[in-house]
Write a protein that binds this DNA or RNA. Structure first.
Lengths: 205, 205
DNA sequence: CAGACATTGTGATATTCAGCACAATCATTC
DNA sequence: GAATGATTGTGCTGAATATCACAATGTCTG
């Protein structure tokens, strides 16, 4: 309702609601009930309403939620109604794939610089961007006001690079390294690890 | 302690404990306390102990956990002490990157076949594997006893492909499509979506 | 080998999160 | 314009999850 620290799971569900709403909008719909949103997002209607109620009253009784309006509101809440500049550290196979990933080329998350510690890679190009040496990390981060970094380096280097990023003022890290990073509490880290995901699924087989 | 339906979060943490333990083993350590494991995995010592206690008593009072033994036990619990055959659907840029991803080339999760609906791609190669048409999905899944699939197709096709996979007997899906899949309750789905991860982080900035 | 010390496993407690149920409210129909 | 039907927002309740605290049990030292 007000500012009483919204649970992290709620924030994560907001992104799925947004996905769902965008799809509905593309299908030409204009209004969605919590039941509909919940069905497509895989959560209960009550959950949808309660989640949204953390941030205000966006629906109309008897009708539901106006899709365009709710999209705008969620985007505002998540602060994705603006462009964000990212940097990418690690120009290996994964780094190349990320540079060419559509969402990072055309979307609101834009990779503005790529770094690698390998001198052989520095000054070569990936996509349209030149690979920069780690020495220029601080400079670029300050210059471009970067707050988010994608970490695509080997596990052995991940903690060291993360320390550098934090020292340079980065406050959010999306890490592809299969290791839990040790960072100050005000730095947010998310992990993407396909193998870890698979390992949790085999348990149920 | 026994088989009283262990929470999913516990299963997910087991994978991080395993990561941590592997790193410790590589550093030449032989014993780890719950405090140490917790510090590197980012959870409280009590949490580590309680999580492990769901499956048995693996530690020794006054000493801690024997790293090699605990690794073996966790691998057994997660059923990753065996090889798993995967199929990959979608041979776009992401599919290519996944095929060349080290863990899927040398690890215990092996991609045994790649499928794509685009006739132009069928019969071309990605890595060392030939891209197969979707028509052969059922045949290969049955022949190779595949239970896990990686979904790397556009969001618009994801639900349709997922339905096919489920119909063919696949019981776990790792989806890279930015959409919540509608599947029977006994089919497990995990999502990997970098943009969604980033969207949850900007909230805190 | 006895005493000091460290660490586990777990019952009890606290906290967080999800589901329920219904009053409040609005569109729509007749 | 009143009655009907649908849907929201939310206090309350219950379930799930995390934390605490300590007895139990082992190691290690002198």
């Amino acid at each position: 309702m007000t500012q009483t620290s919204v649970p992290d799971v709620v924030i994560r569900r907001l992104t799925t609601y947004l996905q769902t709403l965008k799809h509905m909008a593309q299908r030409g719909e204009h209004v969605a009930s919590s039941t509909e949103i919940g069905r497509w997002a895989g959560v209960s209607p009550a959950q949808v309403r309660k989640d949204l109620s953390h941030f205000g009253e966006f629906g109309r009784q008897g009708l539901g939620y106006e899709i365009g309006f709710l999209c705008t509101q969620i985007e505002r809440i998540l602060k994705i109604d603006q462009d964000w500049r990212l940097i990418l550290v690690g120009a290996g196979a994964l780094g190349h794939a990320l540079m060419n990933y559509g969402a990072f080329v055309t979307g609101r998350f834009q990779i503005v610089a790529v770094f690698d510690s390998d001198p052989a890679k520095v000054n070569t190009r990936v996509g349209q961007r030149e690979i920069l040496p780690m020495e220029r990390l601080a400079e670029i981060i300050a210059e471009r006001h970067v707050e988010i970094a994608i970490l695509a380096v080997p596990a052995t280097a991940a903690q060291h690079v993360a320390d550098q990023l934090v020292a340079c003022g980065v406050r959010s890290i999306l890490s592809y390294a299969p290791i839990t990073l040790n960072t100050p509490r005000d730095v947010h880290v998310r992990y993407i690890d396909p193998v870890a995901s698979l390992q949790t699924m085999t348990y149920y087989l």
